[in-house]
Structures are given as structure tokens and as C-alpha cells.
């Protein structure tokens, strides 16, 4: 059907699409295809052999908060918990978050930090690409006409991971800055992805490399000054704008604090420790 109607609008939970339609920002030119009852898109699976989890595009946030998912990808469960209200989490899907590709999408920093792979399908076949290549710009993706997001594949990582987001109210709020931090003990690397501080989700290679070096991986400890430096490097990696939601200055500050606090939750911090 999608092949026949290249101009079709895909609808999953509708929590972005219907808002845009009701506000008159989008008028579906052709048919609207509801994809969220396609069984293959509604499930997720753990593949222990490859050490991955694969999540169907139409899996909802409520489902992603389930302890079974949380045990494997805790940061995704945390991010899902920060989304909207129970009603939105029951309807909204990870595929829809990718389809919209807002820099404030709460699922996206987790996918970016974990180097997830997005799988797209069309009558021409399927293709997979890294999520960082999938997200092209503000609300712009690599999806081509006639293509559908089918699933997302993420690695199960040994080590702490977490997500945090700043909004100007204590729930039901769009992120004005967010961060996901993943500590990969096997690879001895830190990975950081930031939301709402750039045209799309940003990784922080310099901050990641720096902190990876400075953590004592055996004891999972870090010196306080090294953590402070991490915050500074994360802030420096952000490219925020000022808009009606927040100032660029605040966003830059906040992502640094968030990344530092997340790392702090994973590590023992030695306040007087010498930097490594």
C-alpha cells in the first residue's frame, strides 16, 4: 500500500501526527496508514547470541518501561518514563519518535548513545543504518518515500546507563536539555548523547574519550576534577539555540550538569582524588 501511495501519511500512536494535523501544520495529501496494529512492529525480542535487543517500531513507551526491557536497556526505560503522561506513553511509540525526529525526542539520545541501528523496509527491500545517520536534521530523517521504520536494534551493554532531562515543570514537558550516559565496561568507554541542544541528537566524542581515559575501570572511580572537566567538555559539545523555551546559555550549562550527574550515579567520586 505504501508503495502505491508514496504520499501516504504513516500513523502509529498519532501523538505527534494528530497534533500537527489538528494544528493545521500538516494536511495529509493522500491516505493515512495506521501501522500500529501490524503484529511484527508491535513486539520486541532479546537475542542473547548477538547481545542485542530489537524493538519493533510500534512498541509503546509503556511497554518499554516494563522491567523486562529495563533489565536489558535501563536508559531506554528511564527515557520512556520521562515521556508525557500515562496516556501519551500508552499511545506513543519509539518508531514515531524516530519518525518525528525532534531534537527533543526523549527516546533518541538513548538510541544515539547506544549506537542503535534503524531498519527501514519498502517494496524495494530492507536496509539498516546507524541511528546517527538516520537523523539528518531538525525533524528530518533519512526515510525515503515508500519506506517504513520496522525496528531498532540496540546492543545490551555491560555497565551503568541512564537518562535525564530538564524541563520547566516536573512532568509532561518537552526537554529543554537532556542527556544519556552509557558506561561500557567491556570496551572501557563512556558514551554520551545530548538532546535539545542541537539540530538533532549530538554525541560528544571529546568528552567521551576524555572521561573514558580518566575512569579507574577496576574500581569504577573517578576524581572529582575529572568529572567537572567532563561536564565542561559536554557543554562545549552542545550547539544550542535560544528560543521561547529556554536560552542557549542555560541549555549549554544544563547538559553539562546532567551528564556529570549521570556519570556520578555510576561512579564512585573521589572528591580529593588526583586527576588521572
Amino acid at each position: 500500500m505504501l508503495a502505491e501511495h508514496g504520499e501516504a501519511t504513516l500513523l502509529a500512536g498519532g501523538t505527534d501526527a494528530m497534533v500537527e494535523i489538528n494544528d493545521g501544520h500538516r494536511r495529509p495529501a493522500g491516505p493515512v496508514l495506521a501501522v500500529n496494529r501490524i503484529p511484527d512492529l508491535r513486539s520486541w525480542r532479546h537475542d542473547p547470541a548477538s547481545g542485542t535487543v530489537t524493538i519493533g517500531a510500534c512498541v509503546t513507551y509503556t511497554e518499554l518501561m516494563d522491567p523486562s526491557v529495563a533489565a536489558l536497556i535501563p536508559a531506554l526505560a528511564e527515557a520512556s518514563r520521562t515521556v508525557g503522561s500515562p496516556q501519551i506513553r500508552n499511545a506513543g511509540t519509539l518508531g514515531g519518535n524516530l519518525g518525528t525526529c525532534s531534537p527533543a525526542g526523549d527516546g533518541l539520545p538513548v538510541l544515539a548513545a547506544l549506537d542503535a541501528t534503524v531498519t527501514l523496509a519498502s517494496v524495494r527491500g530492507t536496509r539498516s543504518l546507524p541511528v546517527l545517520d538516520f537523523m539528518v536534521g531538525v525533524k528530518r530523517t533519512a526515510i525515503e518515500p515508500g519506506e517504513l521504520i520496522t525496528e531498532v536494534t540496540l546492543p545490551v551493554v555491560d555497565g551503568w546507563q541512564g537518562y535525564a532531562k530538564v524541563g520547566v515543570r516536573n512532568a509532561m514537558v518537552i526537554a529543554i536539555a537532556s542527556a544519556c550516559v552509557v558506561l561500557d565496561r567491556a570496551a572501557r568507554t563512556v558514551r554520551v548523547a545530548l538532546g535539545s541542544v542541537g539540530p538533532t541528537i549530538l554525541r560528544c566524542p571529546e568528552a567521551e574519550a576524555d572521561l573514558s581515559e580518566r575512569i579507574d575501570w577496576a574500581s569504577m572511580a573517578v576524581a572529582a576534577p575529572d568529572l567537572a572537566r567532563f561536564a565542561t567538555l559536554v557543554s562545549a559539545a552542545s550547539r544550542p539555540i535560544t528560543d521561547h523555551r529556554s536560552s542557549a546559555e542555560y541549555r549549554r550549562h544544563a547538559v553539562g550538569v546532567l551528564a556529570r550527574r549521570l556519570a556520578q550515579r555510576a561512579l564512585t567520586v573521589d572528591p580529593a582524588g588526583a586527576t588521572r
Binding site: 518514563r81 520521562t82 535525564a164 530538564v166 515543570r169 516536573n170 509532561m172 537532556s178 550527574r261
Partner: peptide
């Protein structure tokens, strides 16, 4: 920060 899990 509530649901955003920003603070300890």
C-alpha cells in the same frame, strides 16, 4: 526535576 530524573 521530577520525572526528568535530574537530581539526587
Amino acid at each position: 526535576g521530577g520525572a526528568g530524573r535530574t537530581a539526587d
